[in-house]
Simulated scan of single mutants.
Amino acid sequence: MNTTPPEELFIQSCGTDKKITDFLKDHVIDKKLITDEVVYQLEEGKLEGVYSDEMFFSNLVLSEHGFRFDMTTVTREKIYILDPDRKRGAIKKDFNGVSVFRYELAERKSTSRITGIMRLASSTVREHTMEGIAYGVYDLQLENSQLSWKEQQLLYRDMPADNDNYRPVAFDAKVRFHLENGKLRFEYIPKYYDFEPEKLTRKLSKDQYPAFVTKER
């Protein structure tokens, strides 16, 4: 029976992995970050979303070949219907609430690369669209005190559309952590796709989201 603690096994088996977890421990875990208000449009200008949040990273746990941690967001997001003059009218969706997302990653022996998944663990957001959705996480890089990776959504999720309808979409993203004047910065740059569920194909949407920049205060 192997009684070596998981953290020691992790250190013995990983090189780059430990540098990444050290970066997370030193600069990310237990930090509070704030995203200033971001405005975006959907359905070719028929809907307008307003988003801001507070973000926390916690619960870093090492295993024999990998690690996991949680990202908690306190989200303030509403989507409004725009009138013909592009003025906000009724609220179509209210996504305010608290959500916990879990990252689970490990080193692959075949390539010595770190890959994993990100998924929703829990949420108080009413009628949220993330249940049963998972993202592949890959291309982790730690260079010049910057940690980055890419996320690719599996299959599709729902997006509010005209009237009371939804339509299938997919999001991919580039993620980057870096320090600015000693303070943590988190950048989330999404790509937004229309999804064809019968053919399992996607194409870049005419609607595009701006970059989200979250800052330690």
Rank of each mutant, 00 (worst) to 15 (best):
N2D: 15
E7R: 00
E8T: 09
L9K: 07
G15R: 00
K18T: 12
K19S: 06
I20M: 13
L24S: 14
K25L: 01
V28D: 05
D30G: 03
T35S: 11
T35M: 15
T35G: 11
V38T: 09
G45F: 03
Y51T: 10
D53V: 13
F56G: 05
E64H: 00
G66N: 02
M71I: 15
M71T: 12
M71H: 09
T73K: 03
T75G: 11
E77A: 05
I81V: 15
P84D: 10
I91V: 15
K93S: 14
K93L: 11
G97C: 09
F101Y: 15
A106D: 04
E107C: 11
K109C: 06
T111D: 10
T115P: 05
R119A: 15
T124H: 03
V125H: 01
T129H: 07
A134F: 08
G136A: 13
L140I: 15
Q152P: 02
Q153C: 10
L154F: 13
L155S: 14
D158L: 11
P160W: 02
A161R: 02
Y166R: 00
R167V: 09
P168W: 01
F177C: 05
L179S: 13
R185N: 05
Y188A: 12
I189N: 10
I189R: 03
P190I: 07
Y192E: 14
D194Q: 04
E216L: 10
